[in-house]
Write a protein that binds this DNA or RNA. Structure first.
Lengths: 231, 231
DNA sequence: CAGTATCCTATCCGATACTG
DNA sequence: CAGTATCGGATAGGATACTG
Protein backbone atom coordinates (compact mmCIF):
# COMPACT_ATOMS: atom_id res chain seq x y z
CA UNK A 1 0.00 0.00 0.00
CA UNK A 2 1.05 3.52 -0.61
CA UNK A 3 1.18 5.13 2.77
CA UNK A 4 -1.53 3.96 5.14
CA UNK A 5 -4.18 1.26 4.82
CA UNK A 6 -7.77 1.55 3.73
CA UNK A 7 -9.29 1.90 7.19
CA UNK A 8 -12.08 -0.47 6.38
CA UNK A 9 -13.09 -3.44 8.50
CA UNK A 10 -14.20 -5.33 5.39
CA UNK A 11 -12.16 -8.51 4.88
CA UNK A 12 -11.59 -7.68 1.23
CA UNK A 13 -10.00 -4.40 2.21
CA UNK A 14 -7.95 -5.95 5.00
CA UNK A 15 -6.70 -8.66 2.68
CA UNK A 16 -5.97 -6.18 -0.09
CA UNK A 17 -3.80 -4.18 2.29
CA UNK A 18 -1.52 -7.17 2.54
CA UNK A 19 -1.83 -8.56 -0.96
CA UNK A 20 -2.28 -5.64 -3.30
CA UNK A 21 1.07 -4.07 -3.05
CA UNK A 22 3.51 -4.00 -5.90
CA UNK A 23 5.01 -7.42 -6.72
CA UNK A 24 3.31 -9.17 -3.86
CA UNK A 25 0.91 -11.32 -5.85
CA UNK A 26 3.62 -12.25 -8.30
CA UNK A 27 5.87 -13.20 -5.44
CA UNK A 28 3.13 -15.29 -3.88
CA UNK A 29 2.78 -17.10 -7.17
CA UNK A 30 6.40 -18.15 -6.73
CA UNK A 31 5.61 -19.44 -3.28
CA UNK A 32 2.63 -21.35 -4.57
CA UNK A 33 4.97 -22.86 -7.15
CA UNK A 34 7.11 -24.05 -4.23
CA UNK A 35 10.14 -21.85 -4.41
CA UNK A 36 11.68 -21.45 -0.98
CA UNK A 37 15.10 -19.89 -1.37
CA UNK A 38 15.86 -16.24 -1.86
CA UNK A 39 17.57 -16.69 -5.18
CA UNK A 40 14.99 -19.12 -6.45
CA UNK A 41 12.31 -16.61 -5.65
CA UNK A 42 14.40 -14.02 -7.40
CA UNK A 43 14.54 -16.02 -10.56
CA UNK A 44 10.78 -15.92 -10.66
CA UNK A 45 10.69 -12.14 -10.25
CA UNK A 46 13.86 -11.06 -12.03
CA UNK A 47 12.69 -7.49 -12.51
CA UNK A 48 12.21 -7.02 -8.80
CA UNK A 49 15.16 -5.55 -6.98
CA UNK A 50 16.65 -7.69 -4.21
CA UNK A 51 16.05 -4.87 -1.78
CA UNK A 52 12.37 -4.85 -2.49
CA UNK A 53 12.19 -8.62 -2.44
CA UNK A 54 13.79 -8.64 0.96
CA UNK A 55 11.38 -6.01 2.17
CA UNK A 56 8.34 -7.87 0.88
CA UNK A 57 9.48 -11.07 2.51
CA UNK A 58 9.67 -9.27 5.82
CA UNK A 59 6.22 -7.81 5.33
CA UNK A 60 4.74 -11.17 4.45
CA UNK A 61 6.43 -12.65 7.46
CA UNK A 62 4.96 -9.93 9.66
CA UNK A 63 1.57 -10.62 8.16
CA UNK A 64 1.87 -14.26 9.15
CA UNK A 65 1.78 -15.47 5.58
CA UNK A 66 5.36 -16.59 5.23
CA UNK A 67 7.80 -17.98 7.74
CA UNK A 68 11.53 -17.84 7.55
CA UNK A 69 13.67 -20.60 8.91
CA UNK A 70 17.39 -21.14 8.94
CA UNK A 71 18.53 -24.24 7.11
CA UNK A 72 20.07 -26.77 9.46
CA UNK A 73 23.77 -27.12 8.87
CA UNK A 74 24.08 -24.21 6.50
CA UNK A 75 24.95 -21.01 8.19
CA UNK A 76 23.41 -17.77 7.01
CA UNK A 77 20.98 -19.54 4.70
CA UNK A 78 17.27 -19.34 5.10
CA UNK A 79 14.23 -20.92 3.62
CA UNK A 80 10.93 -19.17 3.26
CA UNK A 81 7.74 -21.15 3.36
CA UNK A 82 4.07 -20.38 3.32
CA UNK A 83 2.40 -20.75 6.68
CA UNK A 84 -0.98 -22.40 6.97
CA UNK A 85 -2.54 -19.02 6.30
CA UNK A 86 -0.24 -18.46 3.35
CA UNK A 87 -1.09 -21.78 1.79
CA UNK A 88 -4.70 -20.71 1.57
CA UNK A 89 -3.61 -17.81 -0.60
CA UNK A 90 -3.29 -20.33 -3.37
CA UNK A 91 -7.00 -19.79 -3.93
CA UNK A 92 -6.41 -16.08 -4.50
CA UNK A 93 -3.45 -16.62 -6.79
CA UNK A 94 -5.41 -19.16 -8.79
CA UNK A 95 -8.47 -16.98 -9.08
CA UNK A 96 -6.33 -14.16 -10.36
CA UNK A 97 -4.40 -16.33 -12.76
CA UNK A 98 -7.52 -17.96 -14.09
CA UNK A 99 -9.07 -14.60 -14.72
CA UNK A 100 -5.91 -13.38 -16.40
CA UNK A 101 -5.76 -16.41 -18.63
CA UNK A 102 -9.37 -15.95 -19.68
CA UNK A 103 -9.52 -12.20 -20.09
CA UNK A 104 -6.12 -10.71 -20.83
CA UNK A 105 -5.59 -10.37 -24.53
CA UNK A 106 -2.91 -12.69 -25.78
CA UNK A 107 -1.08 -9.98 -27.67
CA UNK A 108 -0.68 -8.03 -24.42
CA UNK A 109 0.82 -10.95 -22.58
CA UNK A 110 3.05 -11.74 -25.52
CA UNK A 111 4.58 -8.32 -25.32
CA UNK A 112 6.34 -9.49 -22.19
CA UNK A 113 8.59 -12.16 -23.54
CA UNK A 114 11.47 -13.28 -21.39
CA UNK A 115 13.45 -16.38 -22.26
CA UNK A 116 14.95 -17.04 -18.82
CA UNK A 117 11.60 -16.69 -17.16
CA UNK A 118 10.01 -19.00 -19.68
CA UNK A 119 12.71 -21.59 -19.27
CA UNK A 120 12.53 -21.34 -15.50
CA UNK A 121 8.82 -21.98 -15.69
CA UNK A 122 9.30 -24.83 -18.12
CA UNK A 123 11.83 -26.43 -15.86
CA UNK A 124 9.32 -26.33 -13.07
CA UNK A 125 6.49 -27.99 -14.86
CA UNK A 126 8.31 -30.36 -17.15
CA UNK A 127 6.84 -33.83 -17.17
CA UNK A 128 9.64 -36.41 -17.26
CA UNK A 129 7.36 -39.42 -17.66
CA UNK A 130 7.29 -39.56 -21.46
CA UNK A 131 11.07 -39.23 -21.65
CA UNK A 132 13.48 -42.16 -21.83
CA UNK A 133 14.61 -43.86 -18.62
CA UNK A 134 18.03 -42.30 -18.95
CA UNK A 135 19.35 -38.78 -18.85
CA UNK A 136 17.83 -36.62 -21.57
CA UNK A 137 19.33 -33.33 -22.64
CA UNK A 138 17.28 -30.89 -24.63
CA UNK A 139 18.69 -27.70 -25.99
CA UNK A 140 16.50 -24.73 -26.77
CA UNK A 141 17.64 -22.10 -29.22
CA UNK A 142 15.61 -18.92 -29.57
CA UNK A 143 16.18 -17.40 -32.97
CA UNK A 144 16.85 -13.73 -33.10
CA UNK A 145 17.85 -13.23 -29.50
CA UNK A 146 21.27 -11.90 -28.47
CA UNK A 147 23.64 -14.76 -27.91
CA UNK A 148 23.70 -14.28 -24.13
CA UNK A 149 20.06 -15.29 -23.81
CA UNK A 150 19.64 -17.47 -26.86
CA UNK A 151 20.48 -20.95 -25.68
CA UNK A 152 19.25 -23.05 -22.77
CA UNK A 153 19.68 -26.66 -21.80
CA UNK A 154 17.22 -28.76 -19.91
CA UNK A 155 18.87 -31.75 -18.31
CA UNK A 156 16.40 -34.35 -17.15
CA UNK A 157 17.62 -37.14 -14.93
CA UNK A 158 15.19 -39.92 -14.06
CA UNK A 159 13.13 -40.22 -12.09
CA UNK A 160 12.36 -36.53 -12.09
CA UNK A 161 15.25 -34.17 -11.54
CA UNK A 162 15.28 -31.32 -14.01
CA UNK A 163 18.14 -28.88 -14.31
CA UNK A 164 18.24 -25.72 -16.32
CA UNK A 165 21.50 -24.35 -17.70
CA UNK A 166 22.15 -21.21 -19.63
CA UNK A 167 25.65 -22.27 -20.55
CA UNK A 168 26.49 -25.52 -22.23
CA UNK A 169 26.75 -28.21 -19.55
CA UNK A 170 28.74 -30.32 -21.96
CA UNK A 171 26.44 -33.33 -22.21
CA UNK A 172 25.45 -34.88 -25.49
CA UNK A 173 22.25 -33.26 -26.65
CA UNK A 174 19.33 -35.58 -27.44
CA UNK A 175 17.06 -32.98 -28.99
CA UNK A 176 17.64 -29.53 -30.39
CA UNK A 177 14.62 -27.22 -30.37
CA UNK A 178 15.01 -24.16 -32.50
CA UNK A 179 12.16 -21.69 -32.61
CA UNK A 180 11.30 -18.13 -31.78
CA UNK A 181 10.56 -17.00 -28.26
CA UNK A 182 7.08 -15.81 -29.02
CA UNK A 183 5.98 -19.14 -30.42
CA UNK A 184 7.45 -21.07 -27.54
CA UNK A 185 5.81 -18.76 -25.02
CA UNK A 186 2.45 -19.08 -26.74
CA UNK A 187 2.72 -22.85 -26.57
CA UNK A 188 3.63 -22.75 -22.91
CA UNK A 189 0.61 -20.58 -22.22
CA UNK A 190 -1.69 -23.00 -23.99
CA UNK A 191 -2.52 -20.57 -26.77
CA UNK A 192 -1.33 -22.97 -29.43
CA UNK A 193 0.38 -26.35 -29.68
CA UNK A 194 3.61 -27.82 -30.94
CA UNK A 195 1.74 -29.52 -33.77
CA UNK A 196 0.04 -26.34 -34.93
CA UNK A 197 3.29 -24.42 -34.99
CA UNK A 198 5.21 -27.20 -36.66
CA UNK A 199 6.55 -24.97 -39.39
CA UNK A 200 8.00 -22.54 -36.86
CA UNK A 201 9.77 -25.14 -34.78
CA UNK A 202 12.77 -27.02 -35.98
CA UNK A 203 13.39 -30.22 -34.06
CA UNK A 204 16.68 -31.98 -34.60
CA UNK A 205 17.86 -35.17 -32.95
CA UNK A 206 15.86 -37.92 -31.31
CA UNK A 207 12.69 -38.51 -33.31
CA UNK A 208 11.19 -40.20 -30.28
CA UNK A 209 11.65 -37.25 -27.94
CA UNK A 210 10.61 -34.83 -30.64
CA UNK A 211 7.35 -36.63 -31.28
CA UNK A 212 6.44 -36.51 -27.62
CA UNK A 213 7.35 -32.88 -27.13
CA UNK A 214 3.84 -31.67 -26.35
CA UNK A 215 3.67 -34.34 -23.68
CA UNK A 216 6.88 -33.71 -21.79
CA UNK A 217 6.74 -29.95 -22.12
CA UNK A 218 5.13 -28.81 -18.95
CA UNK A 219 2.64 -26.07 -19.70
CA UNK A 220 1.53 -23.18 -17.58
CA UNK A 221 -0.82 -24.18 -14.77
CA UNK A 222 -3.46 -22.09 -16.52
CA UNK A 223 -2.89 -23.40 -20.03
CA UNK A 224 -6.00 -25.54 -20.05
CA UNK A 225 -8.29 -22.54 -19.62
CA UNK A 226 -9.49 -21.13 -22.94
CA UNK A 227 -9.22 -17.43 -23.71
CA UNK A 228 -12.39 -15.41 -23.62
CA UNK A 229 -10.87 -12.05 -24.45
CA UNK A 230 -10.98 -10.82 -28.00
CA UNK A 231 -7.98 -11.90 -30.00
CA UNK B 1 0.92 -0.30 -10.28
CA UNK B 2 3.67 2.03 -9.32
CA UNK B 3 5.19 3.12 -12.58
CA UNK B 4 5.40 0.40 -15.17
CA UNK B 5 4.09 -3.16 -15.22
CA UNK B 6 5.81 -6.38 -14.26
CA UNK B 7 6.88 -7.40 -17.76
CA UNK B 8 5.85 -10.97 -17.21
CA UNK B 9 3.64 -12.95 -19.56
CA UNK B 10 2.25 -14.94 -16.64
CA UNK B 11 -1.49 -14.41 -16.26
CA UNK B 12 -1.15 -13.79 -12.54
CA UNK B 13 1.23 -10.94 -13.23
CA UNK B 14 -0.89 -9.54 -16.03
CA UNK B 15 -3.99 -9.64 -13.85
CA UNK B 16 -2.15 -8.15 -10.89
CA UNK B 17 -1.12 -5.20 -13.04
CA UNK B 18 -4.77 -4.33 -13.39
CA UNK B 19 -6.06 -5.39 -10.00
CA UNK B 20 -3.31 -4.76 -7.50
CA UNK B 21 -3.26 -1.05 -7.49
CA UNK B 22 -4.32 1.02 -4.54
CA UNK B 23 -8.08 0.91 -3.88
CA UNK B 24 -8.85 -1.17 -6.93
CA UNK B 25 -9.91 -4.37 -5.19
CA UNK B 26 -11.99 -2.44 -2.69
CA UNK B 27 -13.64 -0.58 -5.51
CA UNK B 28 -14.35 -3.83 -7.31
CA UNK B 29 -15.99 -5.11 -4.17
CA UNK B 30 -18.42 -2.21 -4.52
CA UNK B 31 -19.13 -3.23 -8.08
CA UNK B 32 -19.69 -6.81 -7.05
CA UNK B 33 -22.15 -5.46 -4.47
CA UNK B 34 -23.98 -3.82 -7.36
CA UNK B 35 -23.22 -0.16 -6.92
CA UNK B 36 -23.35 1.63 -10.24
CA UNK B 37 -23.37 5.36 -9.61
CA UNK B 38 -20.38 7.52 -8.85
CA UNK B 39 -21.64 8.67 -5.51
CA UNK B 40 -22.83 5.23 -4.50
CA UNK B 41 -19.40 3.88 -5.25
CA UNK B 42 -17.98 6.73 -3.24
CA UNK B 43 -20.00 5.82 -0.23
CA UNK B 44 -18.37 2.43 -0.27
CA UNK B 45 -14.88 3.92 -0.44
CA UNK B 46 -15.27 7.13 1.55
CA UNK B 47 -11.56 7.49 2.21
CA UNK B 48 -10.76 7.47 -1.48
CA UNK B 49 -10.55 10.88 -3.08
CA UNK B 50 -12.99 11.56 -5.90
CA UNK B 51 -10.06 12.31 -8.17
CA UNK B 52 -8.57 8.92 -7.62
CA UNK B 53 -11.94 7.23 -7.92
CA UNK B 54 -12.47 8.91 -11.24
CA UNK B 55 -9.03 7.86 -12.38
CA UNK B 56 -9.55 4.26 -11.35
CA UNK B 57 -12.86 4.10 -13.13
CA UNK B 58 -11.15 5.23 -16.31
CA UNK B 59 -8.43 2.65 -15.86
CA UNK B 60 -10.92 -0.13 -15.28
CA UNK B 61 -12.84 1.00 -18.32
CA UNK B 62 -9.66 0.93 -20.38
CA UNK B 63 -8.95 -2.55 -19.06
CA UNK B 64 -12.35 -3.69 -20.28
CA UNK B 65 -13.57 -4.52 -16.81
CA UNK B 66 -16.08 -1.72 -16.38
CA UNK B 67 -18.23 0.09 -18.88
CA UNK B 68 -19.64 3.54 -18.52
CA UNK B 69 -22.98 4.45 -19.96
CA UNK B 70 -24.99 7.62 -19.85
CA UNK B 71 -28.37 7.27 -18.20
CA UNK B 72 -31.19 7.78 -20.66
CA UNK B 73 -33.06 10.97 -19.97
CA UNK B 74 -30.66 12.28 -17.35
CA UNK B 75 -28.01 14.50 -18.78
CA UNK B 76 -24.49 14.34 -17.45
CA UNK B 77 -25.22 11.27 -15.37
CA UNK B 78 -23.47 7.98 -15.92
CA UNK B 79 -23.72 4.47 -14.68
CA UNK B 80 -20.79 2.17 -14.35
CA UNK B 81 -21.26 -1.55 -14.72
CA UNK B 82 -19.06 -4.58 -14.79
CA UNK B 83 -18.56 -6.04 -18.22
CA UNK B 84 -18.64 -9.76 -18.76
CA UNK B 85 -14.97 -9.84 -17.94
CA UNK B 86 -15.54 -7.71 -14.85
CA UNK B 87 -18.28 -9.95 -13.56
CA UNK B 88 -15.82 -12.81 -13.43
CA UNK B 89 -13.72 -10.79 -11.03
CA UNK B 90 -16.26 -11.71 -8.41
CA UNK B 91 -14.27 -14.89 -7.98
CA UNK B 92 -11.16 -12.89 -7.15
CA UNK B 93 -12.98 -10.56 -4.77
CA UNK B 94 -14.57 -13.51 -3.04
CA UNK B 95 -11.34 -15.43 -2.73
CA UNK B 96 -9.69 -12.41 -1.17
CA UNK B 97 -12.58 -11.70 1.16
CA UNK B 98 -12.83 -15.29 2.24
CA UNK B 99 -9.17 -15.38 3.03
CA UNK B 100 -9.43 -12.11 4.94
CA UNK B 101 -12.34 -13.36 6.95
CA UNK B 102 -10.48 -16.52 7.88
CA UNK B 103 -7.02 -15.17 8.52
CA UNK B 104 -7.09 -11.51 9.48
CA UNK B 105 -7.15 -11.13 13.24
CA UNK B 106 -10.43 -9.72 14.44
CA UNK B 107 -8.80 -7.07 16.56
CA UNK B 108 -7.05 -5.70 13.48
CA UNK B 109 -10.27 -5.41 11.50
CA UNK B 110 -12.02 -3.89 14.49
CA UNK B 111 -9.53 -1.08 14.58
CA UNK B 112 -11.17 0.25 11.46
CA UNK B 113 -14.60 1.12 12.71
CA UNK B 114 -16.71 3.43 10.63
CA UNK B 115 -20.38 3.92 11.37
CA UNK B 116 -21.46 5.24 7.97
CA UNK B 117 -19.69 2.45 6.19
CA UNK B 118 -21.23 -0.12 8.48
CA UNK B 119 -24.70 1.30 8.01
CA UNK B 120 -24.24 1.49 4.26
CA UNK B 121 -23.27 -2.17 4.25
CA UNK B 122 -26.17 -3.06 6.51
CA UNK B 123 -28.58 -1.27 4.26
CA UNK B 124 -27.34 -3.30 1.37
CA UNK B 125 -27.77 -6.69 2.93
CA UNK B 126 -30.76 -6.17 5.14
CA UNK B 127 -33.31 -8.93 4.86
CA UNK B 128 -36.82 -7.45 4.92
CA UNK B 129 -38.63 -10.79 5.03
CA UNK B 130 -38.89 -11.17 8.81
CA UNK B 131 -40.16 -7.59 9.18
CA UNK B 132 -43.84 -6.63 9.27
CA UNK B 133 -45.73 -6.10 6.02
CA UNK B 134 -45.73 -2.37 6.57
CA UNK B 135 -43.05 0.29 6.75
CA UNK B 136 -40.58 -0.37 9.55
CA UNK B 137 -38.25 2.27 10.89
CA UNK B 138 -35.26 1.28 12.95
CA UNK B 139 -33.01 3.78 14.58
CA UNK B 140 -29.42 2.95 15.46
CA UNK B 141 -27.61 4.91 18.11
CA UNK B 142 -23.90 4.34 18.57
CA UNK B 143 -22.89 5.26 22.09
CA UNK B 144 -19.83 7.38 22.50
CA UNK B 145 -19.65 8.75 18.99
CA UNK B 146 -19.82 12.45 18.20
CA UNK B 147 -23.37 13.48 17.54
CA UNK B 148 -22.80 13.97 13.82
CA UNK B 149 -22.20 10.27 13.26
CA UNK B 150 -24.13 8.78 16.14
CA UNK B 151 -27.60 8.20 14.79
CA UNK B 152 -28.89 6.42 11.69
CA UNK B 153 -32.29 5.39 10.51
CA UNK B 154 -33.11 2.41 8.37
CA UNK B 155 -36.44 2.80 6.66
CA UNK B 156 -37.75 -0.44 5.23
CA UNK B 157 -40.70 -0.34 2.89
CA UNK B 158 -42.19 -3.63 1.75
CA UNK B 159 -41.53 -5.51 -0.30
CA UNK B 160 -37.86 -4.68 -0.10
CA UNK B 161 -36.86 -1.06 -0.41
CA UNK B 162 -34.39 -0.01 2.24
CA UNK B 163 -33.36 3.57 2.82
CA UNK B 164 -30.62 4.83 5.03
CA UNK B 165 -30.77 8.26 6.66
CA UNK B 166 -28.27 10.03 8.81
CA UNK B 167 -30.72 12.70 9.80
CA UNK B 168 -34.11 12.02 11.30
CA UNK B 169 -36.52 11.32 8.45
CA UNK B 170 -39.39 12.11 10.81
CA UNK B 171 -41.18 8.76 10.77
CA UNK B 172 -42.31 7.00 13.90
CA UNK B 173 -39.56 4.68 15.01
CA UNK B 174 -40.48 1.04 15.52
CA UNK B 175 -37.26 -0.07 17.15
CA UNK B 176 -34.40 1.78 18.78
CA UNK B 177 -31.09 -0.02 18.79
CA UNK B 178 -28.54 1.44 21.14
CA UNK B 179 -25.12 -0.14 21.28
CA UNK B 180 -21.49 0.60 20.65
CA UNK B 181 -20.01 0.62 17.19
CA UNK B 182 -17.52 -2.11 17.88
CA UNK B 183 -20.15 -4.56 19.02
CA UNK B 184 -22.40 -3.83 16.07
CA UNK B 185 -19.51 -4.21 13.65
CA UNK B 186 -18.49 -7.52 15.19
CA UNK B 187 -22.04 -8.81 14.79
CA UNK B 188 -22.16 -7.68 11.17
CA UNK B 189 -18.92 -9.49 10.52
CA UNK B 190 -20.25 -12.70 12.02
CA UNK B 191 -17.80 -12.65 14.90
CA UNK B 192 -20.58 -12.74 17.45
CA UNK B 193 -24.37 -12.58 17.57
CA UNK B 194 -27.10 -10.32 18.87
CA UNK B 195 -27.99 -12.92 21.49
CA UNK B 196 -24.44 -13.24 22.78
CA UNK B 197 -24.03 -9.49 23.10
CA UNK B 198 -27.45 -9.01 24.68
CA UNK B 199 -26.07 -7.04 27.57
CA UNK B 200 -24.36 -4.56 25.29
CA UNK B 201 -27.36 -3.87 23.11
CA UNK B 202 -30.38 -1.99 24.32
CA UNK B 203 -33.45 -2.61 22.22
CA UNK B 204 -36.44 -0.38 22.79
CA UNK B 205 -39.76 -0.51 20.98
CA UNK B 206 -41.36 -3.35 19.07
CA UNK B 207 -40.70 -6.60 20.90
CA UNK B 208 -41.46 -8.46 17.70
CA UNK B 209 -38.88 -6.67 15.59
CA UNK B 210 -36.37 -6.81 18.42
CA UNK B 211 -36.68 -10.56 18.79
CA UNK B 212 -36.04 -11.09 15.11
CA UNK B 213 -33.09 -8.74 14.88
CA UNK B 214 -30.50 -11.38 14.04
CA UNK B 215 -32.75 -12.47 11.19
CA UNK B 216 -33.41 -9.16 9.47
CA UNK B 217 -29.95 -7.75 10.05
CA UNK B 218 -28.12 -8.54 6.90
CA UNK B 219 -24.63 -9.74 7.72
CA UNK B 220 -21.44 -9.41 5.77
CA UNK B 221 -21.27 -11.78 2.80
CA UNK B 222 -18.35 -13.44 4.57
CA UNK B 223 -19.94 -13.70 7.99
CA UNK B 224 -20.59 -17.41 7.74
CA UNK B 225 -16.92 -18.23 7.41
CA UNK B 226 -15.26 -18.98 10.76
CA UNK B 227 -12.04 -17.27 11.78
CA UNK B 228 -8.91 -19.32 11.70
CA UNK B 229 -6.51 -16.62 12.82
CA UNK B 230 -5.50 -16.46 16.44
CA UNK B 231 -7.80 -14.28 18.47
C1' DC C 1 24.79 -17.80 -1.98
C1' DA C 2 21.90 -14.55 0.59
C1' DG C 3 20.96 -10.76 1.36
C1' DT C 4 21.97 -5.01 2.97
C1' DA C 5 23.04 -0.23 2.27
C1' DT C 6 22.49 3.85 -0.06
C1' DC C 7 20.69 7.18 -3.03
C1' DC C 8 17.58 9.44 -5.82
C1' DT C 9 13.66 10.27 -8.45
C1' DA C 10 9.14 9.39 -10.54
C1' DT C 11 4.71 9.06 -9.40
C1' DC C 12 1.18 8.09 -6.72
C1' DC C 13 -1.91 9.87 -3.90
C1' DG C 14 -4.24 12.89 -0.38
C1' DA C 15 -6.37 17.33 0.38
C1' DT C 16 -9.02 20.85 -1.09
C1' DA C 17 -11.50 23.62 -3.99
C1' DC C 18 -14.15 24.18 -7.82
C1' DT C 19 -17.55 23.53 -11.96
C1' DG C 20 -21.60 22.23 -15.15
C1' DC D 1 -25.35 14.98 -8.44
C1' DA D 2 -21.12 13.87 -10.88
C1' DG D 3 -17.30 14.66 -11.46
C1' DT D 4 -12.44 17.89 -12.71
C1' DA D 5 -8.43 20.91 -11.56
C1' DT D 6 -4.54 21.82 -9.11
C1' DC D 7 -0.79 21.21 -5.88
C1' DG D 8 2.55 19.57 -2.93
C1' DG D 9 4.65 15.89 -0.25
C1' DA D 10 5.64 11.33 0.93
C1' DT D 11 7.35 7.16 -0.35
C1' DA D 12 7.69 3.46 -2.99
C1' DG D 13 10.71 1.35 -5.50
C1' DG D 14 14.47 1.23 -9.27
C1' DA D 15 19.51 1.08 -9.81
C1' DT D 16 23.79 -0.11 -8.18
C1' DA D 17 27.24 -1.47 -5.24
C1' DC D 18 28.63 -3.91 -1.45
C1' DT D 19 29.24 -7.51 2.51
C1' DG D 20 29.48 -11.92 5.48
Amino acid sequence: MTQTGYRQFCPVAMAAEILCTRWTMVLLREFVADSTRFNDLRRGVPKMSPTLLSQRLKELEAAGVVERRGVAGEKGISEYRLTESGKELRAVVEAMGLWGQRWIEARLSLKNLDPSLLMWDMRRNLNPTPLPQRRSVIQFMFRGLPSATRAYWLVVDPPGEVDLCSTDPGFDVDLYVSTDLRTMTAIWMGLTTVAKEGDKIVLTGSRDIADKMQAWLGLSPFAAEPKRAAA
